[in-house]
């Protein structure tokens, strides 16, 4: 349909703009955050790819979870994620977000982030170096441009699944209205 075509190509333009302009909110719970300053500053300068920091979840497109999450911080993370505006993307950063990393046997650390939030991609490493970060973010850009980064839609579609998982570890979860 003509209409759909217009809509579709408009969406493509938006995706393209989105991939060129990403504001990230780095959720600095773990040690991984220390790798971000070199990534942003003159050595690696991620801003040349249109990626920059954001001050608040309202302005951010990308939620960068930089390290392990405890049950306490997960609660905040979910709240922050829900405050972000679609389209929004989650990137797990470091091995802690993948399988708990060195905290694999800790009783109160979240082992697997994508059970709770729709992760677009992980950047592995303990911790990942700036090169790895840039590589990961460039891949994310490509995914966004191709319309593959649809985590926020997955979250909506599988809301029950995510909520169940969240409530399983956290008990009651406060959510945005």
């Amino acid at each position: 349909m003509n209409n759909n075509f217009v809509k579709g190509s408009w969406q493509e333009i938006l995706d393209w703009a989105q991939n060129k302009s990403i504001n990230m909110l780095h959720y600095c719970t773990g040690c991984g955050a220390i790798e971000l300053p070199p990534t942003m500053t003159s050595r690696y300068d991620m801003s040349r790819f249109g990626i920059g920091p954001a001050a608040t979840p309202r302005q951010a497109d990308l939620l960068l979870v930089t390290g392990y999450l405890s049950t306490k911080t997960l609660r905040r993370l979910i709240y922050t994620y829900e405050q972000m505006q679609a389209p929004k993307f989650v990137v797990g950063f470091g091995s802690c977000t993948i399988n708990g990393g060195m905290y694999w046997d800790s009783y109160n650390t979240i082992k697997q982030l994508d059970k709770y939030l729709p992760v677009e991609m992980y950047i592995a490493g303990c911790m990942p170096r700036p090169e790895a970060i840039l590589d990961g973010l460039l891949k994310l850009k490509k995914m966004i441009n191709n319309g593959e980064a649809d985590g926020y839609q997955r979250y909506q579609d599988n809301l029950e699944f995510y909520h169940q998982n969240q409530e399983a570890v956290l008990g009651e979860v406060q959510r945005t209205q």
């Binding site: 989105q18 060129k20 302009s21 500053t41 801003s47 040349r48 790819f49 249109g50 920059g52």
Partner: peptide, 15 residues
């Protein structure tokens, strides 16, 4: 730094 392209603000607004 190298910095973002000069047309970055247009993209930001569009996004």
């Amino acid at each position: 730094r190298y910095g973002p392209p000069v047309y970055q603000p247009y993209l930001d607004v569009l996004k």
